[in-house]
Design a binder for these strands. Structure first.
Length: 309
DNA sequence: AGCACA
């Protein structure tokens, strides 16, 4: 019962001579709102003084649930910090830590009775956990954490996806995999009023034009190689100068022609030789440049031979 | 209903 003032689970702490820190009778328990990067420092602090429980306990998974499935489910929830799957026998138990108990409660409610998997007809059941998920060693808040090469491969099997601008379909920063199955997402400063966290990837102006990221492209079928490339999927607001900047520095670049059509703009690029074209075909496939929004350009050999100019 | 990691 919630009104008893007694924790529903026993605690061996404190021993007789060390009473818990004074909480004025009738005063609300102090909730420390530390910034995210210090939230996890449970080290060296003796007993967990009454720490608010901000972890939820989730059951009802199919037996073969993967850590990552849970993470991908939870990433969206405000305040999400870390999660873990443990097995009791072959029953999976999930734990998910949030930045506050309010967030945890909200998450618990929104996951309650969710159909996690239709195939196996698994329906989630959530409760507040008895104690918080232990997250090892805090969060690395160093700049490395934002290194794109380290933030790849999270939601889904993108082999070389990097993220810059989140879109509804290319959401917030992928978490980073920690030691054993933990997920210790690099928390961008969480703005409780701002919806989902937005990755703040420091992108110093590149000396030479470089794509801001790469995203997987859809249509992989192609035409026979030649020394000209067709660039499609450029988005509505594509900026020709940006395009030129990117391609003109590629070895073997000869000329570029932009075709503004009704809806899409496409572009052809001629190279000195087949080799240069092929190299760029590979290296810039899926490249995202600022004016293309968050979509990756598709590079193909042209359907027909194009004679530029 | 089942609550672990350190």
């Amino acid at each position: 019962m919630a009104g008893t003032g007694i924790h529903p689970y026993h605690q061996q702490w404190p021993p007789a001579q060390a009473p818990p820190p004074p909480t004025a009778p009738g005063a609300p328990p102090s909730i420390h709102h530390a910034p995210p990067h210090v939230l996890f420092d449970n080290s060296n602090r003796g007993p967990p003084t009454h720490e608010e429980v901000r972890t939820i306990f989730i059951t009802g998974f199919p037996d073969d649930v993967k850590e990552r499935e849970l993470q991908n489910l939870l990433r969206w929830l405000p305040g999400y910090e870390a999660s873990q799957v443990n097995y009791k026998g072959d029953k999976a138990m999930g734990f998910a830590l949030f930045s506050s108990s309010q967030h945890a409660i909200a998450a618990k409610d929104s996951l309650q009775d969710m159909v996690f998997d239709v195939e196996t007809k698994s329906v989630l059941h959530t409760e507040m956990a008895k104690k918080n998920l232990f997250v090892k060693r805090g969060i690395v808040a160093d700049s490395d954490a934002y290194d794109q090469s380290k933030r790849l491969r999270t939601g889904g099997d993108y082999s070389h996806a990097a993220y810059t601008t989140p879109s509804p379909f290319h959401p917030p920063p992928p978490p980073v995999w920690g030691p054993h199955g933990y997920m210790a997402p690099v928390p961008p400063p969480y703005d409780p009023y701002g919806g989902y966290p937005v990755p703040q990837v420091p992108m110093p102006p590149a000396p030479i034009p470089a794509p801001s990221s790469y995203v997987p492209i859809q249509n992989t079928k192609d035409n026979p190689p030649c020394n000209t490339l067709f660039i499609g999927n450029l988005g509505q607001n594509i900026n020709e100068d940006e395009l030129r900047g990117l391609f003109s520095v590629q070895p073997g670049f000869k000329q570029m022609k932009v075709l503004r059509q009704e809806r899409h703009t496409v572009c052809f690029i001629e190279f000195e030789d087949l080799n240069s074209a092929t190299t760029v075909h590979h290296s810039l496939q899926g490249a995202v440049i600022p004016s293309s929004g968050s979509i990756g350009m598709r590079i193909q050999y042209p359907f027909r031979f194009i004679f530029l100019q």
